[in-house]
Design a protein around this nucleic acid. Structure first.
Lengths: 218, 218
DNA sequence: GTCTATACGCCGATAGAC
DNA sequence: GTCTATCGGCGTATAGAC
């Protein structure tokens, strides 16, 4: 056995990472297998010892991109302050310009819509994972805000236990957050005027921070 | 002159529309010129009498898609009620599934990021047009809401004329609106579970309507 | 302006040596 | 497992007849 099992895993991982980087940068069709393998320091022919097709690689690349993205890297024991920090990084020019590992949800969204169900399943899994992480972290915050609000306003959810209601609110909040992040970055990538780009990013930034820190301006 | 000038314009417009439809459905790379021309009831070779390259066609197709999208079709003399209606249509399953002419901003976003500056310029022009239309319509609404709020809360913008401040708020509101619409549809397209898809769309729907009709729940 | 025919290149996938 | 070499197909773009 001239090659160890570990060596194969390492090669596979190099391909996965190279693919994640290139696909995020150029999209599915504009990246060739030769190109990926070249970045992974191998040749074209070796590819099929690791993946059955280009589509299968794409599915893996989405997960790999998610693993490397700032979302995963910063999400250990998320506090509200950390979430705010995450928002700032996500909506930074560095992220839009891919100077940091980008979020596949924003950088590959329309590309994925044209692929098969396995690829979409990867996207969906990444999305659900982020929602889960976020909503769990937001739950505590939501309960605190609710408690504060209940003192000065009528509670229209009195027919439900506070905690169960909180979970729903937290999930909805997490979804709103993700939608705003992905939408803003998706659009900002196609805006060439740097001032307009910055305005767009900043606008969402303040909007989201307002949303999370109580929701209401006045 | 066996062909009238009008005939040429008609042919060009057929190509433009066919391209808009196909690009939105399949993305740039997956659509061939032969395919576009077939939908336009012509053959491959005739294409270059109308456009200089596939990229030039793409740039035009983005504008064509915008012209046909529900956003343009419904935006004559926008009232708040019409905007709410627009939001409902935009965030409908029919739009996500492209049973109505789709919004290129949501359906082509990552695809466009990989093309040249002319293509991006088209995207940017469409985006700016929509922001302009929306913010103009929202301005009136914002001023009304401000007036109402000023009676029961402190106005933190007292150092600026109300109208000028209103324009900025309206633009910010329009951007937030667009970001939410584009982000939600971009993500929802890749969600296979119909229930999760519907939840996502509905969640943004209520969030945006709350945002527009005063911003605050309580 | 539209047609048919074709030049030319690139890509995904496979075959077979080492 | 990785290499080199190649097959088969399809893409953009062009040439030239009508």
């Amino acid at each position: 056995m001239p090659y160890s099992a570990d060596h194969k895993l390492q090669s596979r991982e190099r391909i996965r990472r190279a693919a994640a980087d290139l696909f995020c940068r150029q999209g599915y069709d504009s990246v060739s297998i030769s190109q990926v393998m070249k970045h992974a320091k191998m040749t074209h022919g070796a590819f099929y010892a690791h993946f059955s097709s280009k589509g299968a690689l794409y599915s893996e690349a989405i997960k790999s991109a998610a693993e490397q993205s700032l979302f995963t890297r910063e999400s250990g024991d998320l506090t509200l302050a950390k979430i705010v920090n995450l928002i700032r990084q996500y909506l930074s020019l560095e992220h839009v310009n891919q100077e940091v590992p980008p979020c596949p949800l924003a950088f590959l969204s329309t590309d994925i819509a044209h692929r098969d169900k396995h690829v979409k399943a990867s996207y969906e899994a990444v999305f659900n994972g982020m929602i889960k992480t976020l909503s769990k972290a937001l739950l505590e915050q939501v309960l605190m805000v609710d408690e504060a609000n209940n003192e000065k306003s009528n509670n229209k959810y009195t027919d439900k236990p506070a905690e169960k209601q909180g979970i729903e609110v937290a999930r909805a909040l997490a979804q709103q957050l993700m939608v705003n992040l992905v939408g803003t970055v998706s659009i900002a990538r196609n805006i060439t005027d740097p001032d307009a780009q910055k305005t767009l990013l900043d606008n969402t930034k303040t909007g989201l921070i307002n949303l999370l820190t109580g929701g209401v301006k006045a």
